[in-house]
């Protein structure tokens, strides 16, 4: 879901870059010392996940995990994914530098939304079912939101039909959403059961 350089129009690029800078600023202010190792870990996971392709059927599936990172980090997901996307653009030519702001917005904003919608579900008294659902919700919100945003930005840049794009993005990312949801559910459920203190910063 990395948009390439030269696909979006200049006003869309400028507005999304401005919004992304705002998000990074908020995230940097919110990022505290206790969260830092988790932030680095999730940044590394996001960076590596998109390079690992698991063959499923005749296609291939890979993880994005922006929703899970968002749930665990809140606004700090912006600076974390900014670094990871920058490295992906520099080392793998995924996306591009001019379009970095737009790609960051596409990936990080659904993560922040997942945080606000789901962080109440993973409290100390969360049942296993709640944790599994919250983790799976991360995949749905993270990937679904990213597809909606990418389709929206492409439509705003002109020429293309939003409806068609959403169907296209949706179909293409169903396997990714399923993989993200499964890994998210497993991760959150395991954290709630085995390391509930890891989720403590979420509740503060």
């Amino acid at each position: 879901m990395h948009l390439a350089d030269g696909v979006l129009s200049a006003p869309v690029l400028l507005v999304s870059a401005t919004l992304a800078v705002g998000g990074v600023a908020i995230g940097l202010r919110r990022l505290n010392e206790a969260q830092l190792p988790l932030a680095a870990l999730l940044g590394a996971v996001f960076f590596v996940a998109s390079t690992v392709h698991l063959p499923v059927g005749v296609g291939s599936v890979h993880l994005i995990l922006n929703g899970l990172a968002g749930l665990l980090l809140g606004w700090a997901v912006f600076p974390v994914l900014c670094v990871a996307l920058l490295l992906q653009a520099a080392l793998f030519s995924f996306g591009g530098f001019a379009v970095l702001g737009a790609n960051l917005l596409i990936m990080a904003l659904p993560g922040v939304i997942a945080h606000y919608l789901l962080h109440a579900q993973v409290g100390p008294k969360a049942s296993r079912r709640q944790a599994l659902l919250a983790g799976a919700g991360c995949g749905v919100i993270g990937i679904g939101g990213a597809a909606l945003l990418a389709g929206g930005l492409l439509t705003l840049s002109g020429g293309r039909m939003f409806g068609e794009l959403i169907v296209l993005f949706g179909l293409a990312h169903l396997p990714v959403m399923a993989a993200d949801g499964a890994i998210g559910a497993f991760t959150v459920a395991t954290l709630v059961r085995m390391m509930p203190q890891a989720l403590a910063p979420l509740r503060s």
Partner: peptide, 30 residues
């Protein structure tokens, strides 16, 4: 409800993966 839910997640993942496996995943460089 525990095993059923975990089971459901697994099954849904497999089904969705197989269903949409034919669709190209687009999140790569070109």
């Amino acid at each position: 409800a525990r095993p059923t839910l975990a089971n459901m997640v697994c099954r849904a993942t497999l089904a969705l993966g197989l269903l949409a496996g034919s669709a190209q995943t687009f999140a790569h460089g070109l």
